[in-house]
Amino acid sequence: MLRTVLRLTPTFIFPIFEQKNANDYNMLNLPVSTVPESGWDRVNKMYSKDEYDEVSTELHTVVQASLCGAFVGACMGGFTSSRQAYLYFIENNQATIFKSTMQAKKKLQDYVTVAFAKGAYRWGWRLGSFTGIFSLVATTISVYQNNTSVLEYVMAGAIAGGLYKVNLGLAATCVGAGLGSILGLIGGCVILGLLHLVGVNMDDIRAALYKVKEARVDQYNQALEKSAKIKNDDLTRHHQELIQEKGQQKIEDVK
């Protein structure tokens, strides 16, 4: 029903649902293909590697979103748990006798560090998994429809929220799906609104992230090549010095 309403709604009322012109070029400087493709063909291309054995830009974006979610969750969980551990240690060890101040500081540091690691692990994998599932479902639906709308964010939020609470039973799964769909609706409206204000779409964002990855890999390869040249130059120079000291010797003369 929501999809039908969005299709019948004029684009001057909700311009964020307006598609780009078919003759536009994406950020990878590739013309938009005019050959008709089915939704499953696009999804299959998304989950397939190219001729260079690299994943698609859509999957690369999903991986980046998952890692970003895991990092944010690890930071939030680690800092929160370490703060609680610090306060708990201070409150419950006021009467504890330590041999020295250094021992007390070491015990406190160890306790806070362990709490930070536990909190980072507990929240990192949860938020990373939730973000990954949400991003994967939303991207897959968007690729299948060949368009970006609020619908995929709502469905992705419902699926991610339901899977997040599936271990607590059917009721908790339904509640999680409902809350996830509401959050997905809010997040989708905000994201699409911002994209419309800046004049780009999700394909441009994915292409930009993929270009950043290519630039990072290129810089890494250049650094490896430079270090290899320096190493080889030093080795060659040392070899020439040995030849000058001991002179050249044929392999046949070596016993």
Rank of each mutant, 00 (worst) to 15 (best):
T34W: 06
D110L: 12
V198D: 04
P10V: 05
L59V: 10
T148W: 08
N44T: 15
I97G: 00
I191A: 12
H196C: 01
G178S: 05
N147Q: 10
I191S: 09
I159G: 08
D24G: 14
V150C: 05
L183I: 10
D204I: 02
L87Y: 13
G247R: 00
G169A: 01
L67F: 15
T131K: 05
F130A: 10
E51Q: 13
V198T: 10
S66I: 03
E214M: 11
V112W: 01
F12V: 06
G188R: 00
D233S: 13
K165F: 02
N167S: 14
L127V: 12
G73L: 00
K20F: 15
K106T: 13
Q103P: 02
Q248F: 15
S48E: 06
K213W: 09
L209M: 13
Q145S: 13
V212I: 12
V154E: 02
K20N: 11
Y144Q: 03
I182D: 02
S66M: 15
G180S: 03
V150L: 12
D233A: 11
V175N: 06
M27P: 03
R126P: 01
I16K: 07
S48D: 07
F71N: 06
R7H: 15
V200T: 08
L242D: 06
K211A: 13
A138C: 09
F79K: 04
Y144P: 01
L127F: 12
N201Q: 08
A95S: 14
D110A: 12
N201H: 04
E252G: 08
A223Q: 09
T131S: 12
E18F: 04
A117K: 09
G247F: 00
A120K: 02
A115I: 03
A115W: 01
D253T: 08
R122L: 08
A104P: 03
V112C: 05
A215V: 11
Y153C: 04
Q244F: 05
E51I: 11
R7W: 13
I141N: 02
H239M: 12
G128T: 05
G119S: 04
A115F: 01
I97P: 00
L194Y: 14
Y210E: 05
A74T: 04
I191M: 13
G132Y: 04
K255R: 12
G180F: 00
G180Y: 00
A95F: 13
K231P: 05
E37V: 14
A65L: 10
S56L: 05
T173A: 13
V212P: 04
V32P: 02
E18H: 10
L67T: 07
L108G: 02
I186A: 11
D110Y: 06
R237N: 14
L163E: 00
L235P: 04
L30M: 14
K99D: 11
Y111V: 03
I230R: 10
Q64W: 06
V200E: 04
L30E: 15
H196K: 09
Y52M: 10
A158S: 11
K45V: 04
T9R: 07
Q84L: 14
L235N: 09
D204A: 08
T11C: 07
V150T: 10
